[in-house]
Design a protein around this nucleic acid. Sequence first.
DNA 1: GTCTATAAAGTGATAGAC
DNA 2: GTCTATCACTTTATAGAC
Lengths: 207, 207
Amino acid sequence: MLPSSDSTISTEEKIKLAARTVFMRKGYAATRTRDIAEESGLNLALINYYFRSKENLFNIVMLEICQLFASNVKELLNNPETTLDQKIEQLVHHYIDMLLSNPSIPFFILNEAHTSPDIFLSRIGMDGEMEELYIVKQWKELVNEKEITIQPLHIILNTISMTVFPFAAAPIVRAKSNLSTDSYQQLMEERKIMIPKWISMMLSNKK
Amino acid sequence: MLPSSDSTISTEEKIKLAARTVFMRKGYAATRTRDIAEESGLNLALINYYFRSKENLFNIVMLEICQLFASNVKELLNNPETTLDQKIEQLVHHYIDMLLSNPSIPFFILNEAHTSPDIFLSRIGMDGEMEELYIVKQWKELVNEKEITIQPLHIILNTISMTVFPFAAAPIVRAKSNLSTDSYQQLMEERKIMIPKWISMMLSNKK
DNA sequence: GTCTATAAAGTGATAGAC
DNA sequence: GTCTATCACTTTATAGAC
């Protein structure tokens, strides 16, 4: 969980908080240091006093968001105590809960991954080896057992797509569907339950 | 289909082409008019000579992209000759083919929808009335017939999510999966076939 | 630490020569 | 139509007073 607004926090933290808000809303390029100063209610010069440069401040903010985005996921996927279905369920729950609290994260991540892929990829810990995770072992067992031919990548893509995309496209979807903020959150709560079921259906279909 | 690079085209068209490339890669804010001039191989002053301003040029480019993104879809969804399943199949085919030719479109659309939602929404023709489309009638018939309780919005979200998101997140997915450009395109071709089947499964499940 | 004032660099746009 | 040179303005960053 990222720290939220508070009146007892330090100036440095206030700037970082404001920077996170504005960077997530507008992206790096469209954000001016003046916007961050205004958002924080502090003087423009303090940004450079505490963080040296806009770019440096952005890197710090981005690192924290990436860590938030990746947190707990590895442990969850490597847990020998839960079944494959349970892992998917937990993953979907985890991400939808996080995105309900931080709905701009997908836009931010996609934006940075697209505009500067190299910098982004090196930061988010793309080096982590997937093959050793317990979920991979469970997947292989399922393949043997049920004679599934579907590529795991499709299932991963489907899970992440159905979970994350509705947040990334929220402005468009909400405009088209005429849903209030509350109704949209309600819709996402429904998806927390349903996405694991849909994925389960895909997995149980031998085809 | 957007016009592609050619040596016999006018200066005006060259600028628009270069602008499209750079705007789609970097978004509006991060793009400098100098980048467009460089990409086109032409002089900086010509951009203002032909298009008056960066913003005006962007609006023209964006309008064309939005039209491309929306083209044929309404006709497809309003066709009385095809079944519901066929419409979904055609929709997925249409979009994956288009995105294979223009993989940066999702990023571009999401970026502009997020950073300036009002401007974007007014442009993409969000005013079009959905209720009159033939597919809505077919959906209602299906609901009566099979006693489905699932909200149509979930199905729409799932279809668009599974189709579009893998393109929006391509840099991340490709890095994680170590897939070549060719293999990634192959994967998308597979999804053209499979996504309609998955959606069909969701629809046939009464739950 | 926080402010004002300003330097330094970048960027959209145009004037005017060719 | 196309170029060079430059203006006008914005934006990041810093110097120096308090």
